[in-house]
Design a protein around this nucleic acid. Sequence first.
DNA 1: GCAAAAGTGTTCTTGGTACACCCATGG
DNA 2: CCATGGGTGTACCAAGAACACTTTTGC
Lengths: 251, 251
Amino acid sequence: VSIEQEGSVSAVPSRPRDHELLRIAADVVVLTVRDDLLQVLLVTRHNDPHAGDPALPGGFIRIDESVDAAARRELVEETGLAGPGAHLELLSVYSEPERDPRGRVVSVAYLALMPALPIPTAGTDARHAYWAPVESARGTLAFDHDRILDDAVERARMRLESTTLATAFCPAEFTMGDLRRVYEVVWGTSLDPRNFNRKVTRTAGFVEPTGRVRTPPTGRPAALYRSGPVRALVPPLVREVDEVEDDDDAR
Amino acid sequence: VSIEQEGSVSAVPSRPRDHELLRIAADVVVLTVRDDLLQVLLVTRHNDPHAGDPALPGGFIRIDESVDAAARRELVEETGLAGPGAHLELLSVYSEPERDPRGRVVSVAYLALMPALPIPTAGTDARHAYWAPVESARGTLAFDHDRILDDAVERARMRLESTTLATAFCPAEFTMGDLRRVYEVVWGTSLDPRNFNRKVTRTAGFVEPTGRVRTPPTGRPAALYRSGPVRALVPPLVREVDEVEDDDDAR
DNA sequence: GCAAAAGTGTTCTTGGTACACCCATGG
DNA sequence: CCATGGGTGTACCAAGAACACTTTTGC
């Protein structure tokens, strides 16, 4: 694309290695909500730089595939499934010349949101993948993956505000409490269950009732829903206060 | 990054050309509002494929620069200035294997918003750049640049909803009418001047009054503003109806 | 009965929409 | 004095925030 704009005007038809050949890696930040914590899928590195350190799953793109396809392939290889409900979107591009000590590697990072799988089956093709809470992973990753993770978490928080993607964190059937807990965990806030209920149910196409219910350890059974067809959330859900412990119906 | 995850487990330490070396181009979609039209900066291609066709400005990244830096460099080279008020953000990555007939080229596209410059000075380093209305450029561009342009326009529309970036389309000092016209042109809608006024002035940090005024050809002088420090626009401005010609104060 | 979670209804307030109306300038 | 845009004020309505109250289960 836009080949050699500068060379086209100068006398030299092709300046040989002013622009170089390089490798492109597709890295995926797979996020989920497990045990009321935001968790990220990590692998342990074995090779050269940062051997033994945790890192984001990823790999180089192949000859005949787009970067998107590579990211999706990596996701399947690492998790064993990119099942329904999985969401994959471009996050950003990381291209500082010195970011990889072995040479020039440009990384295209993707953000994936998925339900809390019963741990990726480490045996098939998912080699060393494991879930780790984002908070404990922060600051320990190889290369510039810490920054990528931070960007991913911030993107996920934004996505929950203006889209219905919170359902991507939930299994096929979920309760309002499940969905609300996703927001609370990702945002680090607490939401009013009653207002949240109305907001979600009154947004046409956000969720659809399945008619079935699930009984919690204690309390009234909750209706089960599945995610609806609508992706955009208008008007958006806005997060404001942080770490506010509401005392609710004091009496 | 995430070097060779698949090779690290198999017996073969490095599968030589399963992943290839390739080139990365940075392409920039520079948008502005001129003559009440959304316009895009284009260049005319001279070389091999699509010679003579219009295309987005861009070029290959160099050895020692990031993709961001390459995009910013291209922007300066094509327009002669990336002056204050210019906004540059990552748009998307285009990496279909067959998108460039000469070989594997992955393009990282950026979106730039800037005021209506007095036409890029075609003489210095800005070679063949010119403004073209988006509507007339649509469908005529080389490679897959038509799709990139479409993505850029959609992104720009989204940005106006939830950020104060509309000011990036305006010169250093502008009136409320100028700013409103940006929204109307980019969105293709018409907005109520009075409500728009209040919305903007009541959003703290969106714009700051300069104290000066500008007298239109006919009518009351308008107060001049400069863009404020706030980037996020909460609550957002939502576009709804399209092409509604309001009759306003009928009497 | 009691704790815990689900769910409904009601009030208050904020912000958007649709206008009527006034202001200031050039021709 | 009138056409043309700039700017203020107001009534109405939709949606979020806060919270009282009821429902349905397990223990």
